[in-house]
Write a protein that binds this DNA or RNA. Structure first.
Length: 223
DNA sequence: GGGTGATCATAC
DNA sequence: GTATGATCACCC
């Protein structure tokens, strides 16, 4: 399979992304020498990693933006026939301890969402994976209002975590940003703050963008 | 039906 | 376990 050089600058990244619009996943997979899974049950990250590869993202499991040199995070987003998101969007792992002094401005959520290249992909399960088409990419930088919503949710959730109430936070907290389990399964454990300030073990959590928020981003283009 | 909580694959 | 990439699937 051909290796793809990372884009040198933002226009180059955008050009590559725009060239994929309208193309289906089987076509991209064939170029990369990959086989297409029959469904995503056991390949949940397949689409995202395929697009990463095609755009020349730096492979790695670092908690940073995909195109660090460009200040861009890449997100594929499954959409229905009307262009609405089918899933929430994972942002990053939530810190559950050692969070004294942590502010919104230096949080991982804030850094990752500073600039996102959204790549919509047809995601309805009735469409065979290989036939799903890539949509028009959207380079998004949060507006001041969006930043305010994100910061407010983040601060409320982090406050509860700091108070040792992580187990009381559900996905219903937050208007645009939510906290949900993010682990291999419900038995996975990590350290978190207990009510008395000591450490206890809890299921790891991650921050996710709710569908309505992502939909409003996509709607700017698709109406 | 839709959202919340659970889960899958993989690298290290 | 933690981090990446996310979607699955049960329950309300």
């Amino acid at each position: 399979m051909n290796k793809i050089i990372p884009p040198e600058n933002l226009p180059e990244l955008l050009e590559r992304a725009y060239l994929m619009a309208g193309v289906n996943l089987a076509h991209i997979a064939a170029q990369r020498g990959l086989s297409v899974p029959k469904d995503l049950k056991r390949d949940k990250g397949w689409v995202g990693q395929l697009i990463e590869m095609e755009l020349g993202a730096i492979a790695g499991s670092k908690p940073e933006q995909d195109f660090l040199h460009l200040g861009v995070e890449l997100k594929t987003i499954p959409i229905d026939s009307r262009g609405h998101p089918l899933e929430t969007t994972y942002v990053c792992v939530a810190p559950l301890h050692n969070i004294q002094g942590l502010t919104w401005q230096n949080s991982l959520v804030c850094h990752k969402l500073q600039r996102v290249l959204w790549v919509p992909i047809e995601g309805e399960r009735c469409i065979p994976v290989g036939e799903r088409r890539i949509g028009t990419p959207i380079l998004w930088e949060p507006t001041p209002h969006e930043l305010q919503l994100l910061q407010q949710d983040w601060e409320e959730i982090m406050e509860l975590i700091a108070l040792g109430k992580v187990d009381k936070v559900t996905a219903r907290h937050g208007e645009v940003l939510q906290l949900r389990p993010k682990a291999a399964n419900s038995k996975a454990l990590t350290q978190s703050i207990a009510a008395d300030g000591s450490l206890k073990m809890t299921n790891p959590r991650g921050f996710y963008l709710k569908k309505n928020f992502t939909a409003s981003i996509l709607n700017r283009v698709f109406g």
